[in-house]
């Protein structure tokens, strides 16, 4: 099935974000994107080109000053902050350059936090799901470890497991391999590919690493907040 036949999970239309200031700063300008399930999309561009800003807009952490963003067909423009939070909780997962794991919680507990917030599963089911997610990322032996007892790559994989806790349709990652060596970076990207291919999720990743970007199904390049190229690679 081609993208033309499917409904996009995320739609951005004429999205512009301007920071109010004495001299207003345009972060992104007039962005149009349709993001589909099953694809890994890399956003690349020089520093300051608006990659992370676009990711935060797509992830509903920020609001566009113009244009609109739809998630699963729902226009988010009119939603209040609670509704946006609910959408993030149910449909979106984030992985950042730093793992941002809560330091006082074990790997297992970190993964269970979004599930507890959602409140759909009982304690046993949450534990089982978190254990499965960590196991699938080769962290089965480390579920009781706290973040300071994990390596950078392990912590980042726990962060990925946490992002997947509520089975989101879209995984948004911001330089997820920025603090990892090449081996760990490749392993993390393998996970992204698997999540897209096997689970049908959309994975959007901001990266400086052109090798990894080259592995993505689709690459969007930004310059000065504007999309200068959007091409499918495979």
């Amino acid at each position: 099935m081609t993208n033309e036949d499917r409904q996009p999970l995320v739609v951005a239309r004429n999205v512009t974000r301007v920071l109010p200031a004495a001299v207003p700063v345009t972060l992104v300008h007039d962005i149009d994107l349709d993001i589909f399930g099953g694809e890994v999309m890399a956003i690349t561009g020089p520093s300051g080109s608006g990659k992370s800003s676009l990711l935060y807009l797509l992830g509903l952490l920020d609001r566009p000053t113009e244009g609109r963003i739809e998630i699963d067909g729902a226009d988010t423009a009119a939603m209040n902050s609670d509704a946006l939070a609910r959408l993030r909780l149910e449909r979106l997962g984030f992985v950042f350059q730093f793992h941002f794991l809560l330091p006082e919680f074990s790997a297992l507990e970190n993964v269970m936090i979004p599930m507890r917030r959602l409140g759909r599963l009982d304690e046993a089911s949450m534990t089982a799901r978190a254990t499965d997610l960590l196991g699938a990322l080769d962290l089965g032996d480390l579920v009781r470890k706290r973040p300071d007892q994990l390596s950078g790559g392990q912590a980042q994989r726990v962060a990925i497991a946490r992002a997947l806790a509520n089975d989101p349709a879209v995984l948004l990652t911001d330089e997820p391999t920025g603090n990892l060596d090449s081996k760990n970076s490749a392993a993390v990207f393998d996970i992204f590919e698997k999540l897209a291919r096997e689970d049908g999720r959309a994975v959007v990743t901001v990266t400086h690493d052109l090798d990894l970007a080259g592995r993505a199904d689709r690459r969007v390049e930004l310059v000065d907040g504007t999309v200068v190229s959007d091409r499918h690679q495979h």
Binding site: L89, L92, F100, R117
Partner: peptide, 16 residues
């Protein structure tokens, strides 16, 4: 602050 930010990105509301 970092924990607060990540909790909010996960979907925690202001009230939470």
């Amino acid at each position: 602050l970092r924990d607060i930010a990540i909790l909010k990105s996960m979907g925690f509301r202001e009230a939470d």
